[in-house]
Design a protein around this nucleic acid. Structure first.
Length: 1199
RNA sequence: GCCCGGGUGGCGGAAUUGGUAUACGCGACAGACUUAAAAUCUGUUUCUCGCAAGGGAUUGUGGGUUCGAGUCCCACUCCGGGCACCA
């Protein structure tokens, strides 16, 4: 019975074997090139793995396997990122120690991970909660604590190199140094639940309320450890150029860091010494600053509270703002709020105007300086705010429109300046507007009435005059001015001059009645006036300026954010935005009112957590000495074992309650001191774990320099998009820091970063325990096997996309594997084919010295290249024929000569067998008769005396022997007949004269060769042989199509794995399988390069489905694991398609397809295409304008 | 709201980067095998007009560039991810 595919039976077996043989262990140092691929190490949660976790593991596993098979020394490690909130919360809930929770979770995760057969090197397993690991996390923290950022060298250095001003006293000195450390303390607001009296993570704040008890969350300011990542902001952006990250990852990081160049400007406060510093990217709009806004947290408010006459109101507002999230505060869609600080005024340094100061929560304390200069005309948020509170909006930048196409400025034409008004005229009763169609001029413009403003005339007067002249209507009124001022540069064809510049504004006029006077001819010579319905105006107008005016009239005014030309800016008027920025910064610097500045959105990293389950911060707090770092020899500072790890009600870490642990002598002065009780965030351990994998058991260093040098950087790092801005940035920061201090040798940790997409639940929702839609991989493996799961996760869609799980699609993968399994029954491993194909020549040696036999065999094998023994070596001596049967003798001969000569060899042994003599074969050979046929005949006749049965047959056994593989194949032919009484005919051929075959009424001796061959036994055997050889060849030729496809598949699979396009790699393997299934046989002849089809297929599939391929590989008789084989390389010649389908298009539409040779020339293709009936039909009576030919693809006929 | 992605059959998706849109898989339908069912195998399957030959439409919507657009440009719309104490 055929064995069925049973993954449950084979997968566990192989997993155990791979583990035992350690085939995935990465060697430190090797002659092979190294390849370090990495997945983000998992957080071992209580929920266990779900299928989404596996996606990246499997993907990188495939790459690891493929690289390993391609000759790389691959490291693919795994470990546990085990500190953090979920474990702590679970521990509190279940009253289990987080250590135990973690241990159990890791155990479960390990079991789950092992069950899908990834090729992790388990010998390097790490765990961030292991004191041996977090010793080094603490060590790095202390390095940060004891370092400062040297701006001149643009790198971090040991704090001992810091230049400390001499004139400071001890306390000031300490404060100065502490202020420069890369790990420092600062007052920061954290989320706080006043009811539970604990600090909350952002995630625990749901709709501004505590997740647990529902009480509204507050902000509480506490001292927090911070890491000065902002010092690295510029390098974190710049060095992105040196790494291969997905473009979107780079963009997201760049945006997150948010570098913006601009200026710092200082505003004086009237009658007071304090100044307000603001950062702006648009110093050119300084003249448009009509008020200022401070963030509610800005310390000036507290400072000037005596001067602020409405301080109570302000205080209330600040209180309210405090508990809003940044998200709520900066939401553009939300109503702006704010309070004016009455009693104080700021002075705009540009024009010395007094402007009001407001406090509003749309300004954040954490960005820039926590204060802004508000320019409502050119900033959206300021605009909204000013509108709401009735603040002045002053335009200082005019849009500049530059004509394009026909309107483009012409160098050879004169430039003229003008001031014009656009006039929008509304009909007196209908909702229609008067527009101009410039069809009579060369301009193609469609606009409103437009006219010049004469000297001494106001815009309104000009508008009224133009409206009357052009429209002919007489009674109208000015309603309002629309928008501000704009500039334009364009070529005016009707006047044949450049308009350089046009200064333009817009007046809106309504007609009062229909009193009308025919306009003068001169007014209408360039255009016609028409009334356009309101809804159609937008599409009718084709010039930018009137379009904008119309938009303002319909939708109201907006701020203008783009660059343009300066106005209302005194001496700077007329400058472009870029010029203005340069000039104003010069001016500010000169007058000591500001300077050029760069600002980042990136903020320093808040590093403290008031929780138990994290790395203790190895700092001692001494009243006298300040913050003192532990000595390296005192690391790790172990997390104390406690019964109660619940949060305290003071907002302090649970560690604060453990007096024994907290109270300590100061390492410096030996006085009473306390330990820092905050712990590190989960991000700490994950910021450097990839370094620990290199040397996980090292007690002296976090990793040895040699190993760092050999393995770093990580060649491929995979992780979710959700880690792009935090973990990825944090770990790059730490790595750069370690690089600055020469602990690592690469400035960047990861050479290449890729991202996987989420697996959604079957309902398209995110998988989550609370939704109850989680798919558990264990169940899938149990039912379908790990290989099916692996294949499905890779096939389901593009690796980077979020895709819903589908159990029914999963079944398709199981079917695929079953078909792979069943294909083994078609595999052809016979040796003959191998020799035949491998030699590529049809030379066959006939192993006989018998000239008659030789002639016969040569006759039968006309199509083959035959040589005889005589042709190669006359010295060869015949072997002893000591076998009993034709088969044995034939084999002895064939083997002997084949081995001697190395040729594919044919030998024949044949003879007459007579029934009456018990059919003894070979008995009557010529040797038996000692060469004398007459004597032999007589002897035979004598033995047959008294026997009635004259039935006999000739038999021939032909052996084809392949000396390379030591294998052979035999073919037998029989000719039945009877012994006749007297020899008849030519007796020169052994027993022929006495044998008469059935169906022939003469003896063989009487026949010509031609006649004899119809009945001949040897001919029959040879025919079988020839048929076999031809069949092999036919199959081989048929397999050529497979051969081409195979090489195309190797190419596709290799490239797709490289590009993480696993879904199409699998699809191409499916296409190959489909094709192979159509074949009668699939070759698998290891000796023959063209005959390894099945092996190659299995190897290609093995990184995806390691278990089934390993099993089939073994079933084929291989001893060594398939995963240690080398990955096939494709032959570009073989991968090429010889014949292609050329597409014929008419005007870009597919009309015909022609099969042609791939390298067909343009002329030939044209000729063939134009002669096609289908094509003739389409081009009949039409003029061929152009023919476009794309080699190997298509031909497009344009008619 | 801001930043980053994305939108192609009934479904997941493919398309060598501007050149045959819908590969591959799922599902569905029909047939073979079976007492029957399941499994398996074979065929059909974007929509639409047509008996057929053949035609027309179609990659979220609208416009543009091009001999030719899923792919490039502009505007809109809808969906997903991130937003700094979840990891």
């Amino acid at each position: 019975m055929m064995q069925k595919y049973n993954p449950q039976k084979i997968e566990k077996k192989w997993q155990k074997k791979w583990d035992e043989n350690k085939i995935y262990k990465a060697k430190d140092f090797s002659n092979k090139p190294k390849y370090y691929c990495l997945i983000e190490f998992p957080y071992p949660s209580g929920a266990g793995l779900h299928v989404g976790h596996l996606r990246s593991h499997i993907a990188i596993d495939i790459i690891a396997r493929q690289k390993r098979m391609s000759g790389y020394n691959v490291m693919y490690p795994i470990g546990w990122d085990a500190f953090g909130l979920p474990t702590e919360n679970f521990a509190i809930k279940t009253k289990t120690h987080p250590k135990i929770v973690t241990k159990n979770n890791i155990k479960n995760f390990t079991k789950q991970i092992k069950s899908y057969g990834p090729s992790f090197d388990w010998s390097r397993e790490i765990n961030t909660t292991d004191p041996k690991y977090y010793k080094w996390t603490q060590w790095i923290f202390l390095k940060l604590f004891n370092s400062f950022y040297d701006q001149k060298l643009d790198k971090a250095r040991d704090i001992k190199y810091l230049d400390v001003p001499r004139d400071l006293n001890n306390l000031e000195k300490r404060e100065f140094i502490d202020g420069q450390r890369l790990a420092y303390e600062a007052e920061m607001a954290i989320n706080w639940c006043p009811s539970c009296k604990i600090g909350l993570a952002n995630e625990e704040v749901v709709n501004n309320a505590c997740e647990r008890c529902g009480a509204p969350a507050e902000k509480k300011t506490m001292k927090q450890w911070m890491l000065r990542i902002t010092k690295y902001a510029n390098r974190l952006i710049k060095d992105l150029e040196t790494v291969d990250y997905l473009e979107k990852i780079k963009t997201q990081q760049v945006n997150w860091i948010g570098k913006s160049e601009g200026a710092e400007v200082e505003f004086r406060i009237k009658n007071y010494e304090s100044r307000i510093r603001v950062f702006t990217t648009r110093p050119d709009t300084l003249f448009g600053c009509t008020y200022m806004v401070l963030a509610p947290e800005h310390n000036l408010i507290e400072e000037l509270k005596l001067q602020i006459t409405n301080y109570e109101e302000v205080k209330k507002y600040i209180q309210k703002a405090k508990n809003k999230s940044d998200l709520d505060r900066t939401d553009l869609a939300k109503e702006k709020t704010g309070v004016e600080l009455k009693g104080i005024k700021a002075i705009n340094p540009a024009n010395n105007e007094e402007i009001p100061i407001w406090v509003a929560d749309y300004v954040l304390a954490t960005y820039g300086t926590g204060a802004i200069m508000a320019v409502p005309a050119h900033d959206e948020r300021d605009f909204e705010f000013a509108k709401k509170f009735g603040l002045e909006i002053r335009q200082v930048v005019a849009p500049l429109f530059i004509g394009e196409g026909k309107n483009k400025i012409r160098k050879d034409k004169k430039n003229t300046k003008r001031t014009v008004v656009d006039v929008i005229i509304k009909h007196w009763e209908k909702d229609e507007y008067f527009c101009l169609n410039w069809s009579k001029s060369k301009n193609d413009w469609k606009s409103f009435v437009v006219g010049g403003v004469e000297k001494g005339e106001s815009e309104e007067e000009a508008a009224l005059r133009e409206a009357k002249e052009e429209s002919g209507y007489q009674n109208m009124r000015v309603v309002k001015k629309i928008g501000g001022t704009t500039y334009s540069r364009f070529f005016a064809a009707h006047k044949d001059v450049n308009r350089h510049d046009i200064k333009r504004s817009c007046i809106y006029i309504e007609l009062l009645d229909n009193s009308f006077m025919e306009p003068k001819e001169e007014e209408v010579k360039n255009h016609d006036g028409i009334w356009i319905k309101k809804g159609e105006v937008k599409d009718f107008i084709n010039l930018q300026e009137p379009k904008i005016h119309w938009d303002i009239l319909q939708n109201g005014e907006r701020s203008f954010l783009k660059d343009g030309i300066a106005m209302n800016s005194e001496q700077f008027n007329g400058l472009t935005t870029a010029e203005f920025k340069k000039e104003i910064i010069k001016w500010l610097s000169k007058n000591n009112l500001g300077r050029k500045a760069i600002n980042y959105k990136l903020r320093d990293w808040v590093f403290s957590r008031q929780h138990y389950w994290g790395e203790p911060i190895p700092i001692v707090k001494c009243d006298k000495c300040g913050n003192i770092s532990l000595k390296e020899k005192d690391l790790p500072l172990k997390l104390p074992d406690v019964k109660n790890y619940e949060p305290t009600d003071t907002g302090e870490s649970p560690l604060a309650k453990i007096d024994r642990w907290v109270n300590i002598k100061c390492p410096k002065c030996n006085g009473n001191a306390k330990r820092e009780t905050d712990t590190m965030p989960n991000w700490a351990g994950s910021s450097w774990y990839f370094l620990r994998y290199l040397d996980p058991k090292n007690n002296k260093e976090f990793a040895s320099p040699e190993k760092l040098k050999y393995w770093m950087p990580v060649d491929l790092y995979n992780g979710g998009m959700e880690h792009t801005t935090l973990h990825l940035l944090y770990s790059r920061f730490w790595h750069k820091f370690l690089f600055d201090l020469n602990y690592v040798n690469t400035p960047e940790p990861y050479a290449k970063r890729r991202s996987h997409g989420m697996i959604l639940a079957e309902d398209g929702q995110k998988m989550s325990k609370s939704r109850g839609n989680v798919v558990n991989p264990d169940k899938v493996i149990e039912k379908y096997g790990a290989d099916t799961l692996r294949l499905y996760e890779m096939f389901m869609g593009p690796y980077g996309d979020a895709i819903p799980w589908s159990t029914s699609s999963l079944i398709g993968m199981n079917r695929f594997l079953e078909r792979v399994w069943n294909m083994k029954n078609k595999v052809e491993t016979r040796f003959i084919a191998s020799k035949f194909i491998a030699s590529k020549s049809k030379t066959i040696l006939i192993a006989t010295n018998n000239q008659g036999k030789l002639k016969e065999l040569k006759d039968h094998l006309k199509d083959f290249d035959i040589i005889s023994l005589k042709d190669i070596d006359k010295e060869i001596i015949e072997p002893e024929e000591n076998g009993k049967t034709f088969e044995e003798n034939s084999l002895i001969k064939a083997k002997y000569y084949a081995k001697k000569t190395g040729y594919l060899t044919i030998a024949d042994d044949s003879g007459l067998c007579v029934n009456a003599l018990n059919g003894r074969p070979g008995v009557f050979s010529s040797r038996y008769a000692e060469g004398d046929y007459k004597k032999a005949h007589q002897k035979l006749f004598k033995e047959l005396e008294n026997k009635k049965d004259r039935y006999a047959y000739f038999q021939s056994v032909v052996t084809l022997y392949d000396p390379k593989n030591n294998k052979y194949e035999q073919f037998s032919g029989k000719c039945e007949g009877k012994i006749i009484d007297k020899p008849q005919g030519n007796s020169g051929f052994g027993y022929d004269p006495i044998f008469m075959p059935d169906g022939l009424n003469k003896s063989f001796g009487e026949c010509s060769f031609e006649e004899k061959y119809k009945y001949d036994h040897r001919k029959k055997a040879i025919d079988k042989l020839v048929k076999h050889l031809n069949e092999v060849e036919t199959r081989f030729i048929a397999s050529k199509t497979i051969e081409i496809l195979l090489h195309q598949t190797i190419k596709k699979v290799s490239e797709d794995i490289e590009n993480l396009k696993f879904n199409t790699a699998i699809s191409s393997l499916m296409i190959l399988l489909n094709e192979m299934e159509k074949q009668k046989t699939i070759f698998n002849i290891p000796a023959c390069p063209a005959g390894r089809q099945y092996s190659i297929f299995l190897i290609l599939l093995s990184p995806f489905a390691p278990h089934i391929t390993e099993e089939l590989w073994k079933m084929m008789g291989n001893k060594e694991s398939i995963h240690l084989q080398s990955f096939p390389k494709y032959n570009p010649e073989l991968a090429k398609e010889k014949e292609i389908t050329l597409v014929v298009q008419i005007n870009g539409k597919l009309r015909d397809q022609i099969k042609v040779l791939a390298d067909i020339s343009e002329e030939e293709a044209k000729k063939i295409a134009l002669e096609r009936e289908k094509i003739k039909k389409w081009i009949e009576g039409k003029e061929i304008r152009r023919i476009i030919f794309v080699k190997g693809k298509l031909i497009n006929i344009v008619v």
